[in-house]
């Protein structure tokens, strides 16, 4: 019986559902599934320029595990590039930061600190807000 997979903490989910290649004759429906934690690994190390140790602590996993997720992410992206496949993001073994909300009226994403009483969108004052936690 292997150990259970620890949930990886993700600060914020990606803002897209996927990427599609264009300018190709191939019209296949094949795709590569990029997990949220893999997106986060790429973001932390290549966009925020953190080292693997810092990034792994942030995601609540060990450094070797982070390295594995990061490698798997790179390989998936490379596979999609070379084989002209679509990339789709899927939830994976992720634990979302529960503090993010989205406004359905203006698409702004925001947090609500404990000191704030009203639950309205800070941009358009709409009350059509939704938590991004555990969204599938």
């Amino acid at each position: 019986m292997p150990r259970r997979t620890r949930l990886r903490k993700v600060v914020a989910p990606p803002e897209f559902k996927g990427y599609k290649p264009y300018g190709t004759y191939k019209n296949s429906k094949e795709y590569v599934e990029l997990l949220y934690e893999e997106y986060e690994a790429i973001k932390l190390s290549d966009y925020d320029l953190m080292n693997h140790k810092e990034a792994s602590e942030l995601m609540g996993i060990s450094r070797p595990t982070f390295a594995r997720i990061y490698e798997s992410a790179r390989r998936k992206i490379a596979k999609a590039f070379v084989e002209t496949k679509e990339i789709r993001t899927v939830f994976g073994n992720t634990q979302m930061d529960d503090s993010w909300f989205i406004c359905n009226a203006c698409q702004a994403r925001f947090t609500i600190p404990k000191t704030l009483k009203q639950n309205i969108c800070p941009m358009c004052s709409s009350d059509q807000i939704e938590s991004l936690n555990n969204q599938k």
């Binding site: 600060v11 803002e15 702004a108 925001f110 947090t111 704030l116 941009m123």
Partner: peptide, 27 residues
């Protein structure tokens, strides 16, 4: 009390959350 930006780094996010400053992300 409130910050409007396009993206918050993980460290900034953690700190701002502790300080009870509202973060707003718009694209």
């Amino acid at each position: 009390d409130k910050i409007i930006s396009g993206d918050f780094g993980p460290k900034a996010k953690e700190l701002l959350e502790k300080l009870n400053i509202q973060m707003v992300v718009i694209q």
